[in-house]
């Protein structure tokens, strides 16, 4: 997103969210939010700012720093539609990148499914492969591996050779 649009968005978000919720804005525009302010931020971005399309939910394992990170990529679909129809979009199109960090010991992030149902399976995938719990998810269970599986393979300390042999 362009610098000026991002600055405007950041200022509006700081006003809308509680003090200290917006922890950091990185150089490329990604915004780090406190986990307990994620739902407020999501509601604001969807309803007030028009970012109605959650494209991607990713889990990243920062093992050296002892943290898990969940990254959300948001776009404005209805505004993007205006471009396709030949009109002026009248606002930023995205991406808005939200990042949430939680400690590795007991990773739990509020689920954004009530705001963007597109996270329904993507959060299940992050839970399955990384082990991050999503509180408030309607149906949090494994999606790729079988239910009896106990490990979380995408973690940096999981090695198939050690656990399964050869």
């Amino acid at each position: 997103m362009a610098g000026a649009e991002l600055e405007g968005l950041r200022a509006r978000m700081e006003k809308a969210l509680p003090q200290g919720a917006l922890q950091e804005v990185q150089a490329d525009g990604a915004m780090q939010i406190r986990p307990n302010a994620l739902l407020r931020a999501g509601q604001f971005l969807r309803d007030q700012e028009g970012f109605d399309y959650l494209s991607n939910v990713t889990g990243v394992d920062w093992i050296e720093q002892g943290q898990f990170e969940v990254v959300y990529h948001l776009y404005a679909m209805r505004r993007g539609e205006r471009i396709v129809l030949g009109k002026d979009p009248d606002g930023p199109l995205g991406p808005v990148v939200l990042k949430v960090r939680v400690p590795r010991g007991d990773p739990a992030v509020p689920s954004v499914v009530p705001i963007w149902p597109s996270a329904l399976w993507q959060e299940r995938e992050v839970y399955d492969l990384m082990g991050i719990r999503f509180d408030g998810h309607p149906d949090l269970k494994r999606i790729y591996l079988w239910d009896e599986f106990e490990d979380h393979p995408l973690r940096k300390d999981y090695s198939p050779e050690e656990v399964q042999g050869e």
Binding site: W146, D147, E148, F149, E150, D151, Q164, G165
Partner: peptide, 10 residues
């Protein structure tokens, strides 16, 4: 042929 079962790790 014996059918493999789902175990905790493999």
């Amino acid at each position: 042929r014996p059918i493999p079962q789902y175990g905790p790790h493999d």
